[in-house]
Nucleic acid binder design. Structure first.
Lengths: 108, 108
DNA sequence: AATTTTTATCGTAATATTGCAATTAAGTAA
DNA sequence: TTACTTAATTGCAATATTACGATAAAAATT
């Protein structure tokens, strides 16, 4: 035991959980916010923006990439990172539509 | 090592990461979706809705509560759960505002 | 009072995450 | 070719998460 029982939940629930999990670390929130603020893809210097060692940042970038939230492109010996609009929009829509889906009256 | 270095990030980044982390499991996505669909607070039967044992569900509910996403009220020998609109709205707004903050052009 | 119902907590095993030093890989520059 | 730069990978220790059986706590029912 110890592993998440993904097979018992819908694809959509697993997909949203995967994206939320990827953002479930302040460093990865910081990376995403940084990628959002720059007006072009950024090559490299994410490491200098974060208070973490290079291997640690590399690992966080990998997780964001695995979750589909960012993309990485090889450019010479550097790598150009940017937001993956398709997946991010998918996640944003999920949360944006939440308000209209909440039918619960506050009773607690 | 192994613990998240929260002290290096802003309060807001940590707060968003905490909420995202709480939703980073399909069972907790499922719980939240269930609480959203019912038009009143639900007493108990969340366990019957999920393919997980009662202690496991109780643990997931605790994490959602710790993240501030849901509230629980004692009602006799049962507990009435419902969405915490204040925090959920906070999270929803964060993601809703993302679209306008993304200045990056797709270049990858 | 004894039983049942409902939910939380404890204890524990399996697995996953976080962080980084050391190293590797792969391109660039000298 | 020999450095230098940039980023990924490996290996490992510390910590956290996931899951559930067993048990406890607390109110309701009999």
């Amino acid at each position: 035991m110890g592993a998440t029982k993904t097979e018992h939940f819908t694809d959509h629930q697993n997909e949203m959980a995967t994206m939320a999990k990827a953002l479930g670390h302040p460093a990865r929130i910081a990376i995403l916010e940084y990628l959002m603020t720059v007006d072009t893809c950024i090559c490299g210097d994410i490491v200098n923006e974060l208070p973490l060692a290079q291997p640690t940042v590399s690992q966080h970038l990998k997780e964001l990439k695995n979750a589909g939230l960012i993309k990485g492109n090889i450019e010479g010996n550097a790598i150009c990172y940017c937001i993956d609009h398709t997946t991010i929009d998918h996640m944003i829509n999920y949360f944006s539509n939440m308000t209209s889906k909440i039918k619960t009256k506050s009773c607690c």
